[in-house]
Design a protein around this nucleic acid. Structure first.
Lengths: 223, 223
DNA sequence: TCGGGTCTGTCAGCGTTTTGTCATTTTCGA
DNA sequence: TCGAAAATGACAAAACGCTGACAGACCCGA
């Protein structure tokens, strides 16, 4: 479930990204309005979270332009508290829901799920690869229906790879996502982690792309 | 039996909340129309009591929006005395019953019970997980039919987890929901509370997901 | 108003799990 | 075949959650 996040405030962007990823979404985060518009125009998202005050191109214009071009994914707009004028404009521009800042992450997630569900796209929190199933709601991984017990770090690794299945994920990207303070490139923590996970998964789920990173793929998938 | 109350008048909201709670309902009270709409859209209620004159989003719009999205819990609308036009609109919007202000609490409760009964066994007031049963109407928890005595705080914890069964609930979310605005990672209040509840429940009802939070699940883990 | 009981948060201690590092071996690709 | 990249096993420190004890707040009846 890919989500586009367009928000210029570095701090909020980071927090939201982290929270949404923890909730099982895959996030493309963008600070600049124009860049955000471009992504929304060219990529496919389940939904977008859009801040209105943006550099480059303001949020309302981004939204209007998407709608004018027929992009119909649901959009959740972040507004300053009490900015009713903005809301009204947003409605006209085609927003699906609003969230006044500041907000609780929990509420953002709930609303996002709501608009995704409403848009028909099922907000299914389950990702399946072969016989392995990841349930992001229960934060549980099952192989052939049998739950696998994973440590937090191990879970995050598998979840990240599965949510990005079909794509080679560089080690660096992994360590950045697994650690708040990502360790030096003198560390082989990721390799160790992958090893530990593999020992728990009888499957050859995680493939090594020597020199590039790791990838999770459908068994028959070609890539 | 959870009821959503959307009413901007502080006084009425308080009175109704108190009366309904005394009558055995669990109330989510909300003053703002938009917030109320959101709750009705994302949570599960046995019924809603909806005032028409609301800030944020007026009651009729809230109701229409719920119905447009397929939310079909019964709605009792509060109208100003003699405002017949409102009633007609309400009918079209999908209200189930009306109550002109001012009203007696007994009448509100009676009508509420009526529309809930009429709506047929929907929105069961009871959540069951394995042999554990949570009766939100009586605010009682029973294990194999035997009532368990819980303190208010303990009840809230179990109720929240059971109402969100199948989902990992972070500790932070729990402490936010369990009352006051004090939530620091420097406190282990939630852990203590969970411990206390567990001692009273012979069941392995509440599972710990180390590093993530707690979850209540069906014993067979299907979802 | 007093006294006992309950509720709830804090604290410190404890055992377990987790996790990064290191040294070493294995594997893979050119 | 060689060298770099990745995997592995062992280890120790850190993180995490559980528990029992305790104290202040609160409630209720006498």
């Amino acid at each position: 479930m890919r989500i586009l996040l367009v928000e210029d405030d570095q701090r909020i962007r980071q927090d939201v990204t982290t929270a949404l990823e923890a909730a099982g979404f895959v996030i493309d985060a963008e600070a600049n309005g124009e860049e955000g518009w471009f992504l929304g125009d060219t990529e496919t998202y389940a939904a977008a979270v859009l801040d209105l005050g943006l550099p480059g191109m303001d949020g309302l214009s981004v939204l209007k332009r998407w709608r004018a071009e027929g992009r119909d994914f649901p959009v959740l707009v972040l507004t300053a508290r009490g900015a009713w004028a903005e809301r009204v404009e947003g409605i006209d521009a085609g927003a699906d829901d609003y969230l006044p800042k500041p907000f609780r992450m929990e509420e953002l997630i709930a609303r996002l799920r709501a608009i995704i569900r409403r848009s028909g796209g099922q907000a299914s929190p389950v990702v399946t690869v072969g016989e392995t199933e990841l349930d992001t709601r229960q934060m549980r991984l099952t192989v052939r229906g049998v739950p696998v017990s994973l440590s937090p770090q191990e879970y995050r690794l598998v979840a990240y790879l599965m949510l990005h299945k079909g794509r080679v994920v560089p080690q660096q990207e992994l360590s950045e996502h697994l650690q708040s303070v990502h360790f030096e490139r003198e560390s082989n923590a990721v390799e160790v982690l992958v090893g530990r996970v593999r020992r728990k998964l009888p499957t050859a789920l995680i493939e090594t792309r020597r020199g590039f990173g790791y990838i999770v793929n459908e068994p028959d998938g070609t890539s």
